[in-house]
Amino acid sequence: MTRLYINGIEVDLEEGTTLLEAVEHLGIEIPTLCFHPGLSAYGACRLCVVELGDGRLVSACTYPVQEGLQVRTHSPRVLRARRMLIELLLSICPGSKRLQDLAAEHQVERVRFSVRDERCILCGLCVRMCAEQMMAHAIGFVNRGYRRRITTPFDLTSDVCRRCGGCLYICPVCELRCQGPEAPSVVCGSCMTPAPTCPPVYEDLACYMGAAGECGTCVRGPRTPDRRSPDFTRRRESV
C-alpha cells in the first residue's frame, strides 16, 4: 500500500495505481479528453494536470502513485494551466461541443491563437481503440509536428479496417457539433452566464444547450460581445 495526500486528504492505494485513478477514487473530478479506462494511458491532452508537492505539473493519467506524494488537483497554477490548454485545444478544434463545454466550465472566454479548424486534437484515442480493442491497427499518426495527423497507410482504404466505427465512437471532438446559429466568436461561452428562461422574448438563442437552445437557459448573457449591439439593448429594454 502506498500512502499519499490528495488535496490534503490522506489515501492508501495499491502500488501501480495512477494519480488519475486515485483522484477519481476520492470522487474529485478533473477533466480528461484522451483517457479511457479500457485503453492504455497516453497523456496527450494534458488536461488532467495536477501539481505535485515539489511544484511540478504532471499528467495524472500517466503518473503512478508514490509514497508520501502531495497532490493538488485544483491549485491556481493547475487551473491556469488547464485554461491555457483548453484555449489551445479550442484553437484547433472550435467546432467541438465537448471543448466548448470545458471552456465554459473553466471560464475560458477568448482564444488568443490563430484558429485553424482541424477537427482533431490528436489525442490518439481512435488509434488506441483501433489497435488495443479492435486489434485492427488500421489507423495511426503520420508525419510530425505541424503536419501530424491521423490516417490509414498511404491514405488508402485500409485492408484491415472492419468499419466497426470504434474510432468515431470514442472520438471526443467529432461528436455532436453546434446545432444552432453560429456563435459570435470561437468561444461561444453563452452557457457561462445563464439568464432567466424566456424563449418568446429572446430570439437570439445560443446553440449549445438542447436542440438549438430550446430551453433558453443559455440566452446570450451580459458577457458575450452581443450585449454591446444596439439590437440587443433594445430587446432587453422591451422585456
Binding site: 495511426g140 497507410p153 484491415v160
Partner: peptide, 12 residues
C-alpha cells in the same frame, strides 16, 4: 508489425 506503424515511422 502493422503496416500503419511502418508508415508512421516512414513519415516521421
Amino acid at each position: 508489425i502493422p503496416l500503419i506503424d511502418l508508415y508512421s515511422i516512414a513519415t516521421f
